[in-house]
């Protein structure tokens, strides 16, 4: 691994992994506690429309994704809040429409899209320095928002009814949260790909939740787990010559499953010990 770092692509991969882990830990915690996993999944898939738009306009597809994903997140937020349609339904519709737009845009663009698969499944080994800069900017934006509006976002996540009465602009904050999720999705696309984003948004935060009841500590732990899983996954994929995005996700998922399995076994064991005291 160390000798691999002499290559620029490997150094970029390392930085990309760290930038991705940092935001997915912080925003992932909100996704978990506010229970917006499905809408986040929908935002992630809709971002494909932005990738397609980027190809069509001949710009960096990631730049296309920034604007398109933000727009679809805000649309989802407004439609779910302002209409009587159930959130579930809207999530399903916009999920598919975003992807469909992506397919159409790519079809309309001249030539063909050579690195399309890397947007769908991620390829941390091919992140160019320009994208790293963009990821860094998005990371900074998200951190600034979370620090500035920490108490408002907590109020939004915990109790909307009360917060409304206390004059907290609940709807705007909800849209802001969805916007942050959209930006996080864009940061993660290069690392694990559109289809796998949702795992990185949920698994480190879920694991962190098992160790603490404090939202701030939960964020710190989720970032730490994110870093370990992303870099660990990268190393494993290098070692085993497997796709990096998928390896990162599988490492995430396996650790989470192993954690719950071990905890269950331990509890069963301690219950058995209580039932038959040694004597």
């Amino acid at each position: 691994m160390i000798e691999a770092l002499q290559y620029e692509f490997m150094r970029n991969a390392l930085v990309a992994g760290l930038l991705a882990a940092a935001v997915c830990g912080v925003v992932g915690v909100y996704v978990i506690v506010k229970k917006v996993v499905s809408i986040s999944g929908s935002i992630a898939h809709a971002s494909f429309g932005g990738i397609g738009l980027g190809y069509l306009l001949g710009i960096n597809p990631i730049i296309g994704a920034v604007f398109f994903t933000l727009a679809s997140a805000l649309t989802m937020g407004l439609v779910t809040r302002r209409t009587k349609l159930s959130e579930d339904t809207i999530i399903g519709i916009l999920w598919a429409m975003g992807m469909a737009l992506g397919v159409v845009f790519i079809g309309l663009s001249p030539g063909y899209a050579p690195d399309l698969l890397s947007y769908l499944f991620g390829n941390i080994l091919t992140v160019p320095t320009s994208d790293l800069l963009l990821m860094l900017v998005l990371d900074v934006v998200i951190f600034v928002v979370v620090i500035a509006l920490y108490k408002e976002l907590l109020a939004l996540a915990f109790d909307e009814e009360f917060s409304k009465a206390a004059g907290v602009p609940v709807e705007k904050l909800y849209l802001l949260l969805l916007g942050m999720i959209a930006l996080t999705v864009v940061v993660l696309i290069r690392v694990v790909g559109i289809i796998l984003v949702i795992a990185l948004l949920t698994i480190p935060a879920t694991l962190a939740r098992q160790f603490t009841h404090d939202l701030r500590k939960m964020m710190l732990l989720a970032v730490l787990f994110g870093v370990i899983f992303t870099l660990g996954g990268l190393w494993l994929s290098y070692l085993l010559d497997m796709a990096s995005g998928a390896t990162i996700i599988l490492l995430n998922g396996s650790v989470l499953l192993a954690f719950f399995a071990v905890r269950r076994l331990r509890r069963r064991k301690s219950r058995a010990e209580v039932a038959t005291p040694a004597g």
Partner: peptide, 30 residues
Amino acid sequence: YVPQHNAFDREFPISVGEVVLMGRNIHTGL
């Protein structure tokens, strides 16, 4: 205001002190 009880998630990672501070939001400001 004390809203209806069913609104909140028992598993939410928040301390008693943080819940009460939330009541100050209107005075503290954005």
